[in-house]
Amino acid sequence: MTITESAAPPVLSLRGITKNFGAVAALADVDLDVGAGEVVAVVGDNGAGKSTLVKILAGVYRADAGAVRFQGEEVALESPAQVHALGIATVFQDLALCENLDVKANLFLGRELRPFLLDDVAMEQQSWELLRQLSAKIPTLKVPVAALSGGQRQTVAIARALLGDPKVILLDEPTAALGVAQTAEVLNLVERLRDNGLGVVMVSHNMADVRAVADRVAVLRLGRNNGVFDARSVSSEDIVAAITGAADNAVSKRASRLAAGTEES
């Protein structure tokens, strides 16, 4: 199994991240590096620890052990607000948008610009700047989110995450439940984020989406690292084997044959 490392120095680096829930070890000694201008896909079966890892990076959970370095400095991820202020933004699968509010109101919900009263002009200007940065296909800021497509809603959620100029953005299943055209729209957004120099962590179960945009693929299995692959050279079969443990079984069986003297090294 070929494991590769990114050539660029990581903007985000995790070492030995461990999280237990009672007697259940959700994560054990997990390492992960993310470079600026790089998309790292995190994949794994149900129960592999993907959601727990995202929630630790988002400040929702605190790791029981391990170290996090951000832009070369060791940091503590203590709360969602502190993590966002640090420069790590998260878009969860449920998006957390208010469907009765328009695009601009959703972008600035809880972060309204108000020197005295609401600064609608400044918020509208920043909204269009964010959407242009993503080449978003949203014709007006006045449309309620309820009237947007799934891909457009994902665009609004990502644009909201970009407020505050983050260096890393976490995307939790960004194409789940989307159609073909909407999925292509979101994948274009992911590429745009990379082109703008952000480090992107994309949790996904869709291998086609992973192969389309990821630079590296990090596999979690039963809460542990089970390989980091160059997305350009690894086969989908090898990734699936790492996810399911088939690769580990093959290595174990060969080691047993070697030990028994039934196979030459």
Rank of each mutant, 00 (worst) to 15 (best):
G22N: 11
A81R: 15
K142T: 14
S256H: 14
T175G: 05
D94M: 11
K104G: 05
E78A: 12
T52D: 05
S135L: 07
P115D: 00
I169N: 04
V60I: 15
A85M: 11
A218W: 03
V168D: 00
A23F: 14
Q71F: 02
S233T: 15
E129P: 06
V143E: 14
A218L: 13
G35K: 01
G35T: 00
L113I: 09
C98R: 10
Q93V: 14
V145H: 05
V39I: 12
L189M: 15
G87D: 07
K19G: 01
D215R: 02
A105T: 11
A260D: 07
S204A: 12
N188E: 15
L163H: 04
S149E: 11
D230L: 02
L95M: 14
L198D: 03
V91K: 03
E185T: 06
Q133R: 15
G16E: 13
I3E: 15
F92D: 04
W128S: 08
V91F: 00
V83A: 10
Q82W: 10
N225Y: 09
L222A: 14
T18W: 12
A208G: 10
L107Q: 01
R15Q: 13
G44C: 03
L113C: 03
A89R: 04
E237D: 07
N206L: 05
L187G: 02
A214L: 03
P10S: 04
R224A: 14
D238I: 09
L131K: 11
G110A: 10
D172S: 05
D195C: 03
A260C: 05
A255V: 03
Y61E: 08
L57W: 05
S204I: 14
G66D: 10
F70S: 10
L189C: 13
G22D: 09
A26C: 11
A48F: 08
S79G: 05
A218S: 09
W128V: 14
D45S: 02
A7L: 10
P10W: 00
F21C: 01
A157N: 03
L148P: 09
K50V: 15
K253Q: 15
V210K: 08
A212G: 04
V143H: 01
L27K: 10
T140P: 01
N20F: 15
G197D: 00
R254I: 07
S235L: 09
V217Q: 01
D120R: 15
P10Q: 02
D215E: 07
F92K: 12
V145E: 10
V40N: 00
D209M: 08
P10I: 02
M1V: 08
L97G: 02
V234E: 02
D64A: 08
E74S: 08
E263C: 04
E237P: 01
L163K: 12
A214M: 02
L12D: 00
D45E: 13
G223D: 06
M207D: 03
V121R: 13
I239P: 00
L113E: 01
L109C: 07
A176F: 00
N249A: 06
D215M: 01
D94S: 12
A41F: 10
I88A: 06
G164R: 11
V180C: 10
L14S: 07
E264C: 08
A23I: 13
Q133W: 10
A63Q: 15
